[in-house]
Simulated scan of single mutants.
Amino acid sequence: MSWLRRLRPNTSGLMIGRAVGTVAYAVAAVVVVPAHLRWVALLCTAVAFAGAVYSWRARMDQPVHRVVGLVVMAAGGHALYVVDPSSPGWLPAGIAISVALAVLPLTIAVPFAFLTAGTGALIAELRNPTAIVPLLAGCTGFAVLGAVVGSSRQRADQAERLLASEKAAREAEARAQVYAERARLAREIHDILAHTLSAQIVGLESARLLMRRGAPGEAVLQQIEQAQKLAREGLDETRQAVLSLRGDTRPTADAVRGLAQGASAKLAIEGTPEPLTPEAGLAVERTVREALTNVRKHAPGAAVRIRLAYATDEVEVEVCDGGPATHAGPRPVLRDTGTGYGLAGLRERAELLGGKLDAGPAENGEGFRVWLTIPR
């Protein structure tokens, strides 16, 4: 908005110009009239000047006060014109018309301009009929000048408001991005640290109770190894989350391929692997990891198929297992596993990114299927 400020006149220079103009007008008004009317002319000039000052000092949200000041200003000029038609009494009226059209609403400025010009024409008709045409021409010129200045002023004010609105919008967007990043950090902390540490605490507490009861060392060791495994997985996930927050993640296809190899799952990649956003890549990797964790818990030893498909505007990942050899009961849909995130939490993440996650029994009724679709 600095260029708009440069368009505004210098305040000190404007004050000096007004003072010089006022003095020059007062001298001219007094000099041109007969000597016996000079005190009257000086009084009319003072009235016009007082009206101008009152109107100028009124705030923009006080149009009534501005109108009153302009009426007094024009009245002082008309009075001087009545005293002596050869005096510059028309000048305050013309300036009042110009100022009104420049700063007042048109619903007020236009009637004021017609009334002021009409009053001047009536006085000229009575005092100096030959001056009617020049007077009306002068009023028209002042009106055009005021309209041009008012239009330029409105455009400048509108541009300034638009710039202020744009700045506010940018600041609001920046705040929204900060809040979104904070929410994302909170989700990462909750999904990784809270769940992983909770599971470790449970495992270590179980090991402590087993030791107190004199349980076999193998059972205690199993609980400790499980807690150690959870710690390693939590550390790995924390590293991936930090890389994602920095915008520096490993290729999604490589991450899925590593998970498939670790779980002895069959992997099929369709389309040309291309980089995803850090959030989308992390969602795909975590969905595959959670699905494989659920297979180990609910269908140990089951054959697993992973399909990663790159379409034009979305990426799709599907994890299917053939189910365990025997079922103790139906497998729950979208159940939190307690080892990391849970499919319900991952589905929420997918929806935040504009995607969709479905989980449930496979179409053939055997095994379980997790299917994620997310925009690229």
Rank of each mutant, 00 (worst) to 15 (best):
T249C: 04
C44F: 13
A359W: 05
R57N: 09
G203L: 14
A344Y: 15
V82S: 11
P330G: 07
Y25R: 15
Y81E: 08
G281M: 09
R232E: 15
V103L: 11
Q158A: 05
A50L: 11
R305F: 10
K167V: 09
R8N: 12
Q177S: 04
W3Q: 06
D236P: 03
R369C: 02
A362S: 11
R184K: 08
G360Q: 00
L235F: 14
A26V: 05
S165I: 09
L221M: 11
E285Q: 02
E218S: 07
E166H: 14
V40K: 08
E237H: 15
R305P: 03
G281S: 11
M1L: 03
T249L: 05
A344T: 11
L42H: 03
S206H: 06
L193Y: 07
A268N: 07
T196L: 11
V295H: 02
G340T: 09
T337N: 05
G217T: 01
I123Q: 10
A280E: 04
P9H: 09
R18K: 10
A263H: 02
L243P: 04
A75H: 04
E279Y: 06
A102F: 00
G340V: 00
V68D: 12
A263C: 05
L145Y: 02
M211K: 10
A156M: 11
P273T: 03
E285V: 02
A359M: 10
S198K: 06
A147R: 14
I374G: 03
P251L: 07
G217N: 06
A302L: 00
T130S: 13
S12K: 03
K356C: 11
R335F: 13
A227M: 10
V67W: 00
R8G: 12
A268V: 13
D84E: 00
M1V: 12
Y179K: 10
M211P: 04
G262Q: 10
A137T: 05
T293Q: 07
G146D: 12
G247V: 05
E166R: 15
A359E: 15
L334G: 02
L343F: 08
A227T: 10
T238K: 01
R155H: 14
R250Q: 04
V30T: 14
G340I: 01
K167Q: 02
E233W: 00
E205Q: 15
E279L: 01
V83W: 00
P216C: 14
T252F: 03
A96R: 02
E205D: 09
Q228N: 14
R349Y: 07
F112G: 06
V23A: 07
D61M: 10
G141S: 12
T249N: 09
V315K: 08
Q226V: 13
Q158S: 14
A176M: 09
D336Q: 06
K356R: 06
V144W: 09
G217D: 05
T252S: 13
A199E: 15
L7N: 08
V53D: 07
V32N: 01
R127I: 02
E218Y: 05
L145C: 08
C139Q: 04
A227W: 07
M211Q: 12
R369T: 14
